[in-house]
C-alpha cells in the first residue's frame, strides 16, 4: 500500500497563565517592545453598520470567573463579507474583522466593541444567522475552544449551524442577550450547568 504522505497538525498545548506576555504585552505593562498590541479593535470608526458592545465573562466549572482568559473574535462586515480572503468580494475597508479581547485582570469582564455582522452562507448556500466566531484560550485549556456569538434580536430560527445542536435547550448558550439598544451580554460557561456549546470545526 502507498503511504498517505500528509503531515500531522502540531499538537496544541495550553496557552498557560502568562499568555499576555506574548499576545498583549502592552496591556500587561511590558512596554517598549511593540508600539501597540495587535487586535485592539476589529473595526475603524467609519465602519458601516450598527455599532454594538458585547460584554461578558468566562466562568469555570466551580463558578469562578477567569481573570486570565484571552479570546479572539472573527466576524464579517455588516453585509456579511469577510475581510481578506472571502471568495465573494471585498469587505468594508473599515472592518478588519479580528480582535484580541482579554478578561479584565481584576473583574474578569471582557468587552468587544464592534459592528453587528451580516449573515454569511453555509457551504450548501443556506444562510447562517449573523454571528461572531470566538476562540478562547487560558491556563487549563489544552486546545483553544471554538464557539459563536449570535444575537437575541436576529432571526436565528433557520440557521443551519444552530440547527445542528441536538439538545435544543443548549442553543440559548450561543445567543447574546440584549441589554440596551446597542448592547449585549454574552457569558461563557466552560463546564457544568448552562455549559456553552463549543464546536468541533
Amino acid at each position: 500500500m502507498q503511504p498517505l504522505d500528509y503531515l500531522k497538525e502540531t499538537p496544541s498545548q495550553t496557552a498557560g497563565p502568562f499568555v499576555h506576555i506574548g499576545l498583549t504585552p502592552n496591556k500587561l505593562g511590558i512596554g517598549g517592545v511593540y508600539p501597540q498590541d495587535l487586535g485592539d479593535s476589529p473595526i475603524r470608526e467609519e465602519a458601516k453598520g450598527q455599532q454594538i458592545t458585547i460584554v461578558g465573562t468566562v466562568r469555570d466549572g466551580a463558578g469562578m470567573i477567569l481573570r486570565d482568559a484571552l479570546i479572539e473574535s472573527w466576524q464579517a462586515d455588516a453585509a456579511g463579507i469577510y475581510p481578506g480572503n472571502d471568495p465573494r468580494g471585498a469587505a468594508d475597508p473599515n472592518v478588519g474583522g479580528w480582535a484580541r479581547i482579554i478578561a479584565d485582570f481584576d473583574t474578569g469582564e471582557w468587552v468587544l466593541k464592534t459592528i453587528k455582522p451580516g449573515a454569511v452562507p453555509y457551504p450548501d448556500g443556506r444562510m447562517m444567522a449573523p454571528h461572531i466566531s470566538l476562540w478562547i484560550v487560558a491556563r487549563g485549556i489544552n486546545l483553544g475552544l471554538q464557539t459563536r456569538v449570535h444575537f437575541e434580536d436576529e432571526d436565528n430560527s433557520a440557521c443551519p449551524v444552530l440547527g445542528r445542536i441536538e439538545h435544543r435547550d443548549r442553543v440559548q448558550t450561543l445567543i447574546a442577550k440584549k441589554t440596551g439598544p446597542d448592547n449585549y451580554r454574552f457569558d461563557i460557561v466552560l463546564q457544568g450547568e448552562n455549559e456553552t456549546v463549543f464546536f468541533d470545526i
Binding site: G61, S133, R139, F198, I201
Partner: peptide, 16 residues
C-alpha cells in the same frame, strides 16, 4: 474545572 463536559458539536468548516 476548565474542560467542557458536554460533547463538542461537530461541524465541518464554514466560511467563518
Amino acid at each position: 474545572t476548565r474542560a467542557p463536559f458536554r460533547p463538542l458539536v461537530a461541524l465541518g468548516s464554514t466560511l467563518s
